[in-house]
Design a protein around this nucleic acid. Structure first.
Length: 292
DNA sequence: GTAGCATGGTAAG
DNA sequence: TTACCCTGCTACG
């Protein structure tokens, strides 16, 4: 589930498993072969994520820049006695060079949209294109608000624009809009600052939870299946209000959850809890913010 | 068994 | 707008 929380967790786990160790690098699939060879034997300094981008820093100011895309995976294994033969299209494999006290660690990258070796300047360029990331302590939500509050684009579109907000994907988008009762098509400029701030603060908490649990749970304690006695179809997956629940009853009001496509991605919302924004109210929302 | 879709983003057309 | 990365799950037969 590669939204921002997944990448942050991977960065944390990579750092735990590899920081300070020399690694053997290879590209069994071949597409990263030349770059893998050029960093073979290097020391892993650490890993970090910004939005959905992952950077593994190697000694000599070299960074492996990874973007998992829709279905990329990075599997990290620690404390293994023997490293198995690669299965499937492994773009990049990292293996600790000299077995540390905890045993050998290895990581396999598959299906990623992007895996490239970059320098600090290129890394900074990539990061500079991204909006504030709710998972980063240094994030400045005012940067996102400056864009959103001036935009006629739909709030649902803006929330997933990585230049506006980094790390939010389709699940967090649908869920945070529901939790704040905002219709996904509502124009960004009609939001009140407090509404944006409420969503931002919520994302900070929800996504940090996601890093800990490794999944997306957004249902408030009082609305969970456990609290309400509802049956839960799939308890391996996180509990959500509207994401991929088309036609099913809203957990709050029972109205059928709706879906539509916006900029090529699926939207999910409850038409009753997230009523369509009436243009009549635009004037008052702007007046409230002191806009002209 | 297998077709189709999905938590994403880029580049080509 | 479409192809692509080429995984992994689900729905369907």
């Amino acid at each position: 589930m590669p939204e921002g929380h997944t990448l942050r967790k991977l960065a944390n786990d990579l750092t735990s498993a590899f920081a300070g160790s020399a690694v053997r690098t290879s590209s069994p699939q071949g597409r990263f072969a030349a770059d893998a060879e050029s960093i073979d034997g290097a020391l892993v300094v650490g890993a970090d994520s910004v939005g959905k981008h992952l950077f593994v820093e190697m000694s000599g100011e070299r960074f492996v820049h990874v973007h998992l895309g829709l279905y990329g995976k990075l599997a990290i294994h620690t404390g293994v006695e023997e490293v198995p033969a690669p299965v499937g299209a492994v773009r990049l494999r990292l293996v600790t060079a000299d077995a540390p006290p905890g045993g050998t660690a290895y990581a396999d990258l598959r299906g990623a949209t992007q895996c490239e070796l970059v320098g600090p300047a290129r890394r900074d360029e990539i990061v500079a294109r991204l909006g504030p990331d709710p998972l980063r302590a240094d994030a400045d939500p005012a940067r996102a608000w400056a864009r959103i509050s001036r935009s006629t684009r739909a709030t649902g579109d803006l929330l997933m624009d990585q230049e506006v907000l980094a790390g939010v994907g389709n699940v967090y988008r649908a869920e945070v809009l529901f939790r704040h009762r905002i219709h996904p098509l509502r124009p960004g400029r009609t939001l009140r600052r407090g509404q944006f701030q409420g969503m931002w603060d919520d994302l900070v908490v929800l996504m940090a939870d996601g890093v800990r649990s490794g999944r997306i749970d957004t249902v408030r304690p009082e609305h969970t299946a456990e609290a309400t006695g509802r049956a839960r179809p799939d308890r391996r997956r996180g509990e959500v209000y509207v994401y991929r629940r088309t036609g099913q009853p809203c957990l709050l009001c029972g109205t059928a959850v709706r879906t539509d496509v916006l900029v090529g991605r699926n939207l999910f919302w409850c038409p009753r809890c997230q009523p369509a924004f009436r243009s009549r109210a635009i004037g008052s929302a702007q007046a409230e913010r002191g806009n002209t």
